[in-house]
Design a protein around this nucleic acid. Sequence first.
DNA 1: GGAGTTGTGGGGAATGGTGGGTAAAACTGT
DNA 2: ACAGTTTTACCCACCATTCCCCACAACTCC
Lengths: 154, 154
Amino acid sequence: MSAPAASAAPAFFAGEFSHSLDDKNRLAVPAGWRGAEGTEFFVVPAPNQHECLQTFPPAEFRAVSERVTANAALSPQARKGFLRQFNSKARLLTTDKQGRLLLPAEMLAHAGIEGSVVLVGNDRRFEIWSPARWAQKTAEEAAAYQHVAEAMGL
Amino acid sequence: MSAPAASAAPAFFAGEFSHSLDDKNRLAVPAGWRGAEGTEFFVVPAPNQHECLQTFPPAEFRAVSERVTANAALSPQARKGFLRQFNSKARLLTTDKQGRLLLPAEMLAHAGIEGSVVLVGNDRRFEIWSPARWAQKTAEEAAAYQHVAEAMGL
DNA sequence: GGAGTTGTGGGGAATGGTGGGTAAAACTGT
DNA sequence: ACAGTTTTACCCACCATTCCCCACAACTCC
């Protein structure tokens, strides 16, 4: 592709990629997911129990904060508390020149990842799953998927 | 040659084409279906059982997501689950300079495709079928087709 | 009939994921 | 402040897959 230069298009992450973690805990970001928003990503352990790692391009990470700040339906305390926790749990990771992220050990532990992972595109962010947990999550969501698909005429 | 180079209308896919898959799993998109919305397509295995592969131009793919997001009749969990599965099962495929898509092996397996396919235009998307399954589906829908046609005075 | 388009096929170059070796940087304790 | 240890990042290399290019046959439209 031509040099993405600044920002480029609003990256849209789709698809599912099975990659491996080498013994240095490096994870190759799919090539198609790199240039779009740059080489930096915010990684946050999923808030809901022990699931996955959510990964945001910087612009989208900021957008989440702003969306919370602007949400009048939430109490000021809730917003303040969320933002502090959200920011504290996040890590800004930079890819090396081969497009790989070095994932902190605590994050891998949180997501139950060991050796290999599944990268799952999800709109403006993507998620990093342990293969086993992703399989389970897919099974859990299969019914909803089927149901909504039919309702939407797919 | 697509005379109206400018983006064209919201692509409307019609017709039925029998094409073959070469030994590299490349599928030629009908020439008339290329320029309309670009050279990139989102391909998703059909949610309902094992049927076909549904193919969307990027704009239409996004439109589906937005339609689900905006559908207040669905529960938040259902929407969230659907979107994650929908995005994950999708693959963004780009045609080569000859207008062919390289179809992933898992998708071919899902659709029971081997060697040759039928491309079926369907409104703002088109579908990729195994010839056998398409014949069966056509037979299944023959009665409904006849009935509705008569009801509509065709 | 001839010219251009379209579907099909295959060879060779380039890209992407993976692995490891080595140098620079950060943290540690004395 | 210094040396030793650990951590992080850059470099090169390998192999499979993918993409580009060229070529050919069938068909359509002048």
